[in-house]
Design a protein around this nucleic acid. Structure first.
Lengths: 337, 337
DNA sequence: TTGAAAGCGCTAACAC
DNA sequence: GTGTTAGCGCTTTCAA
């Protein structure tokens, strides 16, 4: 059906090597170049990447396995890395495993059959079991956002400094005199949740404050979860005077809960939220936020992966930790002004 | 490096045909089956889909081109169709073209080089220009959510009945006595925007009401856009008594705007929103909503594509129109109770 | 049921 | 610079 290089060879009277060289950026006599270009147009020739992949033993495909597609943080990372990878002629196959370890493992197998050149994974299975086969097959693996302890020093990762981020927010609130600081975390037993809790706890400890369990809530990283968590926090007998909410969706839900309870920010309560600054622009002007460099994470992943791919032998695993930024807004204020 | 069927043949003493038959579900002598299974395990054999693709002339890859990955409606469709396609052993390559027609066209080329078996497209370029090459190459194409006029009757599509959906909402408000109905639309010149406007206008016309331009706003399908649009609407001299907001993000932004203005729903204003019922669960209890069957759209796309693929010759293009549902809540009430 | 052999469309080593 | 050729790992006739 579709034209092949053989057809081009017949049409132009040239050999396959010349054609191959032309398509791969080699030097070809001007006259032949024109000949080829005319034939390509005439025959509607389209290079066949499948055949090329078989020959070169490179699929130029990167497999990406994520826990969830409906999460703003995840999609913005994906779209930034997909952009860069595609520019480098790598395709991205995304597998959403719905936070199910079984599906995650199946995704790894699925992608291995397709001979992906590399694997980027925001891991659901914290044991790292699902990556064993890929590791044995020596496929470059890059973890994002979540480390896997058993794989440390064996695979690369791009993460943010969660402990620092959390500490940064809590210190800010402590500096303003707050002592009762509510914390809204993601799902339990998740790498980022643990790290953000650690940052919170050690910041309190530094300030000589004993953490109060009632102030620590798990909101599942969803809008509804954040909403519920904040509802509970503000209804405590002795409610917190400040809140730190640890992702975008929960911040949104949390702000809604505050509005519905008639609680004014920062008059009645100081709030530090998370991510997606632009979106809050007109809506919650001047919300104080911890901002993760989502585009930076995506870019770093893409570049690291490209690096691993072009230096297969000499590449040694590394953990790249990006830092967060505290964007000062006006949703916080001193406890007793 | 990795084991091939040849290695298996050597290991088992069998021929390639027997192995191929085994892997493709053919009948193999029990003794040989066991032999093969042992060898697979021993050599860590993993089938090479690339080689298979070259031979069978099927990549078992579907290309999906979308305008934006950071949109809840789009990601839920994608994740539902990816799920089904992967179950059928099709991989999905997602290309986010950031609503840029140039990138969209590049994506088509990129995917054609990779010999995708089919193309699913939520189109940015309403002229359909970008699909010409794929159409000529006779690649099955499926449009989602947005029709392309010049391609009608040539490609299949899965859409929702936007005119009906919009009319449904507006009629509901009219029945309650509302005459001044604000409409928050997506970006201008988009298929869905136009259709939803049409539904609104004809519902008003049916009721003998002359539409008021000031009540029609474009919110870009974003949270901030919805927020701004509603801000403007409620500040009109003669503000609407009811609102119809036409996607999820804008509904969210709009509700925030109302809360910030101290406008109570439905006491001061009736509201019909859009999509993502679950998320509103605890947050805006009982919001009256137009609900698109996102999972159904994804499922329909996947199944239609699988159908097109297995009946290449006999398949004739069709437009599948799914209907929306009006979920009654308590965010609307009669104008003069 | 099984084996031998050809070939999918491309790249790259080699010879010219 | 260009042509010839072998072969990537698989499927699929065709014979046995």
């Amino acid at each position: 059906m579709a034209a092949t290089m053989k057809d081009l060879a017949r049409e132009t009277g040239l050999g396959l090597a010349t054609l191959s060289k032309y398509f791969n950026g080699g030097t070809v006599r001007d006259k032949n170049r024109l000949l080829i270009e005319a034939a390509v147009k005439k025959l509607h020739y389209v290079p066949n990447e499948v055949a090329r992949s078989l020959k070169t033993q490179q699929s130029r495909v990167i497999g990406v396995i994520i826990p969830e597609l409906s999460n703003a943080f995840i999609t913005s990372i994906i779209s930034s890395m997909e952009d860069i990878l595609r520019r480098h002629d790598y395709a991205v196959i995304v597998c959403d495993c719905r936070s199910d370890p079984k599906r995650e493992k199946e995704a790894v197998e699925f992608l291995m059959h397709r001979r992906v050149d590399g694997l980027i994974n925001m891991a659901t299975d914290a044991t790292g079991d699902h990556l064993k086969a890929a590791l044995e097959a020596n496929i470059p693996i890059l973890l994002v956002d979540r480390l896997i302890n058993s794989l440390r020093s064996r695979v690369s990762a791009v993460i943010i400094d969660n402990v620092y981020a959390s500490g940064q927010a809590v210190h800010k609130l402590l500096d303003l005199g707050h002592r009762k600081i509510g914390l809204v975390l993601g799902s339990q037993h998740l790498y980022t949740t643990d790290a953000r809790l650690t940052g919170y706890l050690s910041a309190l400890r530094d300030a000589g404050i004993t953490p109060d369990d009632r102030y620590i809530r798990y909101g599942d990283y969803t809008m509804d979860g954040g909403y519920q968590a904040v509802q509970e926090l503000v209804k405590l007998d002795d409610p917190p005077t400040a809140l730190f909410i640890t992702n975008f969706e929960m911040t949104l839900g949390g702000m809604l809960a505050l509005q519905q309870n008639g609680i004014e920010v920062p008059k009645d309560l100081s709030v530090i939220g998370f991510d997606k600054l632009e979106l809050f622009g007109g809506i919650f002007p001047d919300l104080t936020l911890i901002r993760q460099p989502q585009l930076g994470i995506g870019r770093e992943c893409a570049n690291l992966m490209l690096d691993m791919l072009s230096n297969r032998e000499s590449y040694s695993p590394r953990i790249v930790t990006l830092t967060t930024e505290l964007t000062e807004g006006s949703s916080v204020r001193p406890l007793n002004p």
